[in-house]
Simulated assay, not measured.
Amino acid sequence: MAKLSAIGFDADDTLWQNEQFYRLTETRFLELLSEHGERQVLADRLLEAEKRNLALYGFGIKGFTLSMIETAIEVTDGRVSTAVIEKILAAGRDLLRHPVETLPHARDALERLSGAYRIIMITKGDLFDQERKLAQSGLGDLFDAVEIVSDKARVTYERIFTRHADGPEHAVMVGNSLKSDIVPVIQAGGWGIYVPHDLTWSVEHAETPTEAERFREIRDLSELPDLVREIAAA
């Protein structure tokens, strides 16, 4: 059996901050619509719209902004003012311009693993936004390949790790989403290394596959190089 040859990295909330900026934008949205319902009710309506629109707009800021506008129209029975719509659009633009904040140990982990393995960024979301964040992060030169996908499923990892390396059986995926980064890669035969983040969108929640032989969990990326060496030596 071939040795471990590739390591995939999720980007948002694994290599750099992401969800906290969505939460701040959602807070602005809820304040704008506060006279049209209780805060939790409005938040639930927004989440319903986001889930409903994933199949149409995909993941990312543009879909989130459209979902905020749609929710504003719904909860006001179509009476939302153009001024509020303009503020929602401005909030979406602010998200697209937000500076990238890399997470602790991200660069060090990538540098320590680079060269020994194929390093692949596997992220989903808006193409332009993910390219922007990768460029601003300063981490781009550490990746052998970058894959920006519409969603992450078993077939996604089978395709990517076969294209860039020796298949998912000889690959590790590192990420903060159990649903997108961990469960499907284990289903594909790879290793899933879960790095919890304080904020994870509810849509990305899933049962922890604690019984899976190829599941691992670490506190942060500082623990990753040693764990990869342990897996490679097994």
Rank of each mutant, 00 (worst) to 15 (best):
V174L: 04
I231W: 10
F161H: 06
L32C: 06
L95G: 05
E217M: 12
P168F: 12
V149W: 03
A55I: 13
T200I: 15
E31R: 10
R219N: 11
P184L: 03
Q17C: 05
R159K: 13
A234M: 14
A212N: 04
S5D: 09
F64Q: 08
E158V: 05
M121P: 00
I218P: 12
M121E: 04
T102L: 11
T71M: 06
D226F: 07
T14D: 04
P104G: 12
P209I: 02
R97S: 15
E204C: 05
A206E: 14
A90R: 14
R107A: 15
S177E: 12
R229Y: 10
A11E: 00
D94W: 09
R229C: 11
E48D: 14
L199R: 03
R216M: 07
Y22A: 02
E86A: 15
I88P: 11
G167P: 08
K152S: 01
R52P: 00
A2W: 10
A43M: 00
A55E: 15
T65W: 02
R45E: 15
L15C: 08
E217N: 01
M1A: 14
E158A: 00
R39D: 10
Q40R: 13
L89S: 09
L199Y: 08
V228L: 10
D220E: 00
G8D: 03
E230M: 08
S114H: 15
A135I: 03
S180D: 09
M68K: 04
G138Q: 03
L127C: 00
T25E: 07
R45P: 03
E48W: 08
P104K: 11
N176E: 06
A11M: 11
G140A: 13
G37H: 13
L15M: 07
A145L: 09
R163K: 15
L66R: 14
L46N: 09
I61S: 11
L227H: 07
G8R: 01
P225K: 07
R52E: 15
L42N: 09
E35V: 09
D12Q: 01
D220S: 12
W16H: 02
T208P: 01
A233K: 13
D44E: 14
T210A: 14
E217A: 11
L199T: 06
I88V: 13
A233W: 06
T102G: 01
I122W: 06
D181W: 02
A72R: 08
I148S: 01
S5L: 00
T156F: 09
A106M: 09
R93T: 13
F143R: 01
S202N: 07
S150A: 12
R39M: 14
V185F: 05
R28W: 05
Q187E: 15
K51S: 14
I85P: 02
T25W: 04
T156E: 08
E101M: 11
R39T: 14
T76S: 12
P209E: 05
A6D: 06
A188W: 09
R118M: 04
E131Y: 05
E74I: 06
G167Y: 03
V41R: 11
G125K: 02
Y22W: 14
K124H: 01
D12P: 03
F29G: 05
R45I: 02
A165P: 04
S34K: 14
S150M: 03
G190Q: 10
L178Q: 08
I122C: 05
L199V: 13
